[in-house]
Every structure is written in structure tokens, then in C-alpha cells.
Design a protein around this nucleic acid. Structure first.
Length: 741
DNA sequence: CCATCACCACTTTTT
DNA sequence: GTGGTGATGG
């Protein structure tokens, strides 16, 4: 051990660790549980641990299996590990459970009766598939809404309960019907050679559980298993950790039960609370020193989480001195809230806070709209994380469906999506006919179209079907010639005349759809360049497993708008938590259940603990929902926090133009802490702010285009503009000489 | 038989 | 504000 420590020196010098953190990194006697409160350096420990293993324990990167919560976190961690260990770590198995499982499943697919190129179904596809199955089983839509059926199926899968053993075990008509649907749904997926998100985990568990030689292969292949955000793991993930870690016991998990916010999708806090039982001989480390937040923010956080009963008692503390008090602000209505918050954001920026260090957090995506409006009005650059993400837009999903069919012709859900897009005369009747025919032939929809488009009965759809057959025949040729994903996409667009569908109408909506498609073309060609040697199916997998947060780049100097869920694991200088009202936070749908209320409280806690220097929490007296104005009451969570822990500012009686009479806004930079990275004040002029993502610009030489990327600020701001001629040009904002329209 | 328009119930959070 | 569904017109 002594020699270990001295050899540790180079690495430990590069990263400051407190005694508990250091102990956790150096310990090597089996299972480890690290209870890491918010802001206590969880990521730091995990990163140092991996680097330590590689650099000083001579563990090959390929023998480390590390599960993070997002792909973005994985990328960042890999970068930091490489930096710390001073070695490239290309072989490291690091990623979300879903992408790690996908990686294993692609290799072993044949053992499960899937081709390695199996499709991955996202939430939309899942729902479409459930609907299809429900129709085939003639389930009543009223009593068995597809969403409900899907979530029940998801629960079974998260618990690793396959449909086989369930037949006849239903305790009610409802349950029996669900079980029936579950079986049929799985069959449908298999026929389409597809797995949904949940399958990635559960199939991986079945694979390891039922194939001793495969299990042995992966058990001996990985010598260490590490898991971040362990409080948000579900039963399937627990099984995986057990299966992979059982042989050597080198299991290292980090988490915080107070930040468990995913029980609704099957996560079990019990996993972290009973870790020691699952892994006998576990050594537990507890980190309670918070390095992130000021005293007032931390006291507020501690008080906020205090009422929860189902938690391991702990209390965070900070060595940071001073700090502005937390502000709780009351507004008249939601509009007033968004306008005032944006004013406050502006003020922060004028004080020298970088926009990217500011976040506005809300409970539901629907709340973002007002803030976007208010930000735009003030020309404050912002990034919205989440909402309907780029890859979920209709036009994008259409394009991807074509590409997916190229990779997997059995993907009926994708085929169904595009048979009549763009419209080619395939109505309900013709589609039904096609489906019957495909069942008769025992072939997939696309295969039926390719083999047998002439059978009578398609009516007006006949012509369209022949078109479709030719399109896919041509695309198949391109695939055979190993054409790049980029080539396939552009060919597909021209073969189908996809864009003319929108070119006819002159709405802003149609224009934005066209823009989105050309952005997809760009993304594909960019990806093709970045990933030489990888194919279309790799691209599609990456897209379906990417979360919104994965595409988020904080460096674009913009204010961040996101849901509380999205904010997990991040930190910001100034945080605004908005819409803190009963019915929103906590959500009305969780009123009935105390366990769910506790989860909502943890969500609130997660939001609070994102803040480093300043926190403002707001609520409004009334809010537009369902198209009418509804009176709101402040969140019960606020009521439970002692009054002396925050400054209450009532702006509900203040009208526009009178803001100055209102009590002084809080969120002032504490004098002692103004160590913000150098930020030249004069740089944040209108000139800098004039550019934002998605903005249309005009260039003397290149013509009209759209900003697709922003980075840096002031004189250093760089932008990437996608011009209408299809070219993508990087330029310095300072010299670009663009006209904004 | 298909496409378009008007109207309806629903929106929590996401890998 | 929207998306899925139902009536009507082409």
C-alpha cells in the first residue's frame, strides 16, 4: 500500500482529493459503495478511480465497464480519465447502460435469434407497435389505452420478467389482457428484428443469465464494474451489475438516494439502500462536504429535503464563506414570471456572469415556451435542452424511417410510417390490403412491396406502391455499392421528392421543416466525416440512444433552459427554479401517493443543489393551462422551509414600469467570490448578442443561410453557418460581416 | 376511396 | 397549443 501511494503521487497531484475521496479511490478490496451528496465531488472520484486503475493498477482500459447516466457524461469522463492517466483509453467500455448493452447485444445478437443489425425502437415506435398489436388483439382502446399498456409492459421488462412465465397468472381481466398484449408485442418486435429501449437491458440480462459461456466470457473480460448515479438504476441494471461483477467483486457504485428521481421509469432507490446486502463485504464511503454551493443555498437545500422520510440521514456542509441569500419570488402570473426572470438574467449578465453559467429550470417542458419568448424579445441567446428534440420531429423521423428500412427491411413500423409519405395514394384501405397481403405471404411490409406490388386490390395506391418499390430497389443498389450514409440520404430525398411536399406551401412551418431536413443532411455528412469506417446502422444507433442532453454544448454562450430532470449532474453559477406551485412541482398527478410526493421533493432538491452562487425560486398566482387561466398556490415544498432561510419578495402587486419600487432583487454576486472566469464586460454588447442558434443571416458572397452553431463570445465568437447552397462555413463572428434579417 | 378540415381530449419527467 | 379522430367533399 505504501509503495502504491508513492506511485500514486503523479496522478494524485493532478487532482485534488479530500481524505474520504482519496480513500475511495485507493481502496481495492472488493465492492464499494460511495454515498455522494450533491456537489461532493462524485464525478471527480469516479474519474480518479478509473484513471488510477489504468495508470497504477495496470488494468487495461478494455477491462473496465463503466456505466454513466448520459452519453455526454461518458464522453466527458473518458476525456478526463485520459487526461489524468495521461494515456489514450480508447478501449474503455464507458457509456449509458443502454449503449453498453447495445454494444454487447450487437456482438451476441445471433444467440438471441436477432441479426446484429437489429433495429432499436424509440418511444414513438414502441407506441405505434403497441397500437398495432392492440388492434390485432382487438383490445378496447378506452379501457386499455396504449400508453398504459406500454408502461405496464415496460415495468415487466425493467423487472426482467419475460412474457413466457406470465401466461395465466393475471389476477384480473385487465392484467390478463396486458399479459396477452405483452406476449404479442414481443413477438411483433422479434418479427421486425427490433428491440426497444427496455429490451436492450432485459435481453442483455437474459443473454448472460441463460448462456453460461457468454457470461463467463464477459465476466472474465471485465475486471472492474463501475456505476454512476446508482440510485437511478432499475432491477435489470442491478442484475447486470451482479452478473458482471459476481466473479471478481470489483464493483464500485456512486450515488445519492436524495437525488433519486426516476422511480417512475422503474428505478429502485432500494438498489443503493441495500447495496451491502446484494454485495456482501461492501465497504461504504460517505461524502458530505459540498464544494459547489454557498452556505445559504446549501441550508435551503438541506431544509427542502428534510421532510422526506425514506432516506439515509445525512447533512451536507460547505466550507464556502458568505453568499447571497436564496430569493423566493411571487409573481402575478406566468407571463410576469418569465419576463421578470429574463430581466434578472439580463442583470446577471450585466454584472459579468456568463450566460452559460445561468440556468432556468422547470418541471415540465411546456413551461419553456414563455421563457423562450421572453429571451428572444431581449435578444438573450439561449439553448433549450429537451422538448421535442431534433430527432423526434416528424420530418426527421420520416427520413430516418427510410434509412432504417435500408438497414432492416423487416421494420414494419418504419414502413408503415412512410408508405404514404410523401402522399402517394395509399389510404387506409390500401394499407390494410397491404398488411393482409404481407400476412398471407409471411413477409414484412417492405418485402411484400418489393416482391408483390401488383396483386389487385390496392386501388389508387397501386401506382404509389410501384414507385416505392423502385425507390427501394435503387436504394438497395446504393447500399450494395457501400455508399455513405450521406449519399443514401440525399439520394432518398431526391428519389422520393420529399421536400416538394413542403415547398408547395409557403408557411413558416414548412420552411422550418425544410431547414430541419437540410440540417439532417448536414449532420449525416458531418458524422460520416467524423466516423470513417462506420456505417449507416452505427449512425442510426447513435441517434436513437442519444439523449437531448448529449447534444447540449455549454460552450455556446447561451442561457440554459431545461427541465429539472435534465439538470441532474450539472451545475450553474445562477439558477432560477420557476413554476414552484402545487400541481406543477409537485405535479398534480403525483398528489395521491406519498412516495411520489417524496420523489417530487427530491426533484426540487436536485434543482436547488445545481446552484453554485445564486438561487431564485419563483411561483405565480395564476397560470395559463389548458387554455384558461388557473389560480395557483405556492408549492407545499416552499411552505416547509423555515422562513429565515430565504428572502421573500412579493412582486404580485407590481406592474410593468414599477419594478424599481419592488424589493431589491437578490442574486447579487457575493463580493468575496467574484472569481468568475475572465469575462470582459464590454464584450457583451448588442453586437455579440445579435447572433443566436437558428438565426437566418445574409452574407454578401454566400447569400442567405442559417446559424447552426455558436461558440465563444466577444471577439472570439465563432459561428457555423449553413448556407442555402448547402455549404457549411465556419467563421469568426467579428469578421463575418453578416446581415441579420 | 382518399385528402382536407374542423373538433376533441390530453400533456410529467426520459434512456 | 396539438395530435389523433371523425365528418365531408372531391
Amino acid at each position: 500500500m505504501t509503495s502504491g501511494v508513492s506511485r500514486a503521487a503523479p496522478l494524485l497531484e493532478k487532482i485534488a482529493l479530500n481524505p474520504v475521496q482519496k480513500e475511495a479511490v485507493l481502496y481495492d478490496q472488493g465492492p464499494q459503495l460511495v454515498f455522494a451528496g450533491a456537489g461532493t465531488g462524485k464525478t471527480r472520484v469516479l474519474t480518479a478511480k478509473i484513471a488510477w486503475l489504468i495508470r497504477h493498477k495496470n488494468v487495461a482500459p478494455g477491462r473496465i465497464f463503466a456505466a454513466t447516466f448520459t452519453n455526454k457524461a461518458a464522453r466527458e469522463m473518458q476525456r478526463r480519465v485520459e487526461d489524468l492517466a495521461d494515456l489514450p483509453c480508447a478501449g474503455l467500455w464507458i457509456g449509458t447502460f443502454h449503449s453498453l448493452c447495445a454494444r454487447i447485444l450487437r456482438r451476441e445478437a445471433l444467440r438471441l435469434g436477432f441479426p446484429p443489425s437489429f433495429s432499436i425502437f424509440d418511444a414513438d415506435d414502441q407506441l405505434a407497435c403497441v397500437k398495432k398489436v392492440a388492434k390485432a388483439l382487438s383490445l378496447d382502446e378506452r379501457t386499455m389505452p396504449p400508453r398504459l399498456v406500454l408502461s405496464a409492459i415496460s415495468r415487466y421488462k425493467n423487472a426482467c420478467v419475460p412474457p413466457a412465465g406470465l401466461a395465466g397468472t393475471g389476477k384480473s381481466f385487465f392484467e390478463s389482457e396486458i399479459i396477452r398484449a405483452y406476449g404479442a408485442y414481443q413477438e411483433s418486435l422479434r418479427a421486425q428484428q427490433a428491440m426497444d429501449f427496455d429490451d436492450l437491458l432485459s435481453n442483455c440480462v437474459y443473454l448472460l443469465r441463460d448462456n453460461p459461456n457468454v457470461l463467463q466470457k464477459y465476466q472474465s473480460s471485465f475486471s472492474h464494474v463501475l456505476v454512476d448515479e446508482y440510485q437511478d438504476t432499475n432491477t435489470a441494471q442491478l442484475h447486470l451489475v451482479k452478473l458482471l461483477g459476481a466473479a471478481h467483486g470489483n464493483v464500485f457504485v456512486v450515488g445519492d438516494d436524495d437525488q433519486s428521481i426516476y422511480a417512475w421509469r422503474g428505478a429502485q432507490v432500494e438498489n443503493i439502500l441495500t447495496f451491502e446486502k446484494a454485495f456482501p463485504g461492501t465497504k461504504t464511503f460517505t461524502m458530505e462536504q459540498n464544494y459547489r454551493s454557498t452556505g445559504p443555498v446549501l441550508s435551503f437545500a438541506n431544509a427542502a429535503i428534510e421532510p422526506n422520510t425514506m432516506r439515509a440521514k445525512k447533512r451536507l456542509w460547505t466550507g464556502r464563506q458568505g453568499g447571497a441569500s436564496v430569493a423566493v419570488i411571487r409573481y402575478r402570473d406566468d407571463r410576469h414570471e418569465s419576463e421578470s426572470v429574463c430581466d434578472a438574467v439580463n442583470k446577471c449578465v450585466q454584472e459579468g456572469v456568463r450566460p452559460s453559467d445561468i440556468a432556468v429550470l422547470f418541471r415540465t417542458n411546456a413551461q419553456s415556451r414563455l421563457f423562450e419568448d421572453s429571451m428572444r424579445k431581449r435578444r438573450i441567446p439561449y439553448v433549450l435542452v429537451g422538448g421535442t428534440s431534433f430527432y423526434e420531429r416528424r420530418e426527421i423521423k420520416d427520413c430516418l424511417a427510410y434509412l432504417r428500412l435500408c438497414v432492416n427491411p423487416k421494420d414494419d413500423i418504419s414502413c408503415q410510417r412512410i408508405v404514404n409519405v410523401p402522399p402517394r395514394g395509399m389510404g387506409d384501405k390500401a394499407r390494410e390490403r397491404l398488411e393482409v397481403r404481407s400476412r398471407e405471404l409471411g413477409k414484412s411490409l417492405l418485402q411484400t412491396i418489393l416482391d408483390d406490388p401488383e396483386t389487385a386490390g390496392y386501388g389508387r395506391g397501386q401506382k404509389g406502391l410501384l414507385e416505392l418499390r423502385d425507390i427501394f430497389a435503387l436504394l438497395a443498389d446504393l447500399i450494395a455499392q457501400q455508399e455513405s450514409p450521406h449519399e443514401l440520404l440525399t439520394q432518398m430525398l431526391s428519389l422520393t421528392d420529399y421536400l416538394t411536399m413542403f415547398e408547395g406551401e409557403d408557411s413558416e412551418e414548412a420552411q422550418s421543416r425544410i431547414d430541419n431536413v437540410s440540417e439532417l443532411v448536414n449532420a449525416v455528412s458531418f458524422w460520416t466525416e467524423e466516423n470513417p469506417g462506420k456505417g449507416l446502422s452505427d449512425f442510426l444507433e447513435e441517434i436513437s440512444l442519444a439523449a437531448d442532453i448529449d447534444r447540449w454544448e455549454q460552450k455556446a454562450d447561451s442561457v440554459n433552459l431545461m427541465t429539472l430532470h435534465c439538470a441532474k449532474g450539472l451545475e450553474f453559477g445562477r439558477v432560477f427554479i420557476v413554476g414552484c406551485e402545487d400541481g406543477i412541482l409537485p405535479s398534480r398527478q403525483n398528489f395521491d401517493d406519498s412516495a411520489k410526493i417524496e420523489e417530487e421533493r427530491r426533484l426540487f432538491y436536485v434543482g436547488i443543489t445545481r446552484a453554485m452562487d445564486g438561487l431564485a425560486v419563483s411561483h405565480a398566482d395564476q397560470r395559463w393551462r389548458f387554455g384558461s387561466c388557473i389560480p395557483q398556490t405556492p408549492s407545499r415544498f416552499l411552505a416547509a422551509i423555515p422562513r429565515e432561510l430565504y428572502e421573500y419578495v412579493d412582486k404580485s402587486g407590481v406592474f410593468a414600469g414599477e419594478e424599481r419600487k419592488a424589493p431589491k432583487a437578490r442574486l447579487r454576486e457575493p463580493a468575496a467570490e467574484s472569481q468568475e472566469p475572465a469575462y470582459r464586460h464590454e464584450d457583451f454588447s448588442q453586437e455579440t448578442v445579435q447572433f443566436r442558434m437558428g438565426q437566418h443571416v445574409q452574407h454578401k458572397l454566400y447569400g442567405r443561410g442559417k446559424i447552426v452553431n455558436l461558440s465563444g463570445f466577444g471577439d472570439d465568437m465563432r459561428i457555423i453557418v449553413l448556407f442555402n447552397d448547402g455549404a457549411r462555413r465556419k467563421m469568426m463572428a467579428k469578421f463575418a460581416d453578416l446581415e441579420t434579417s
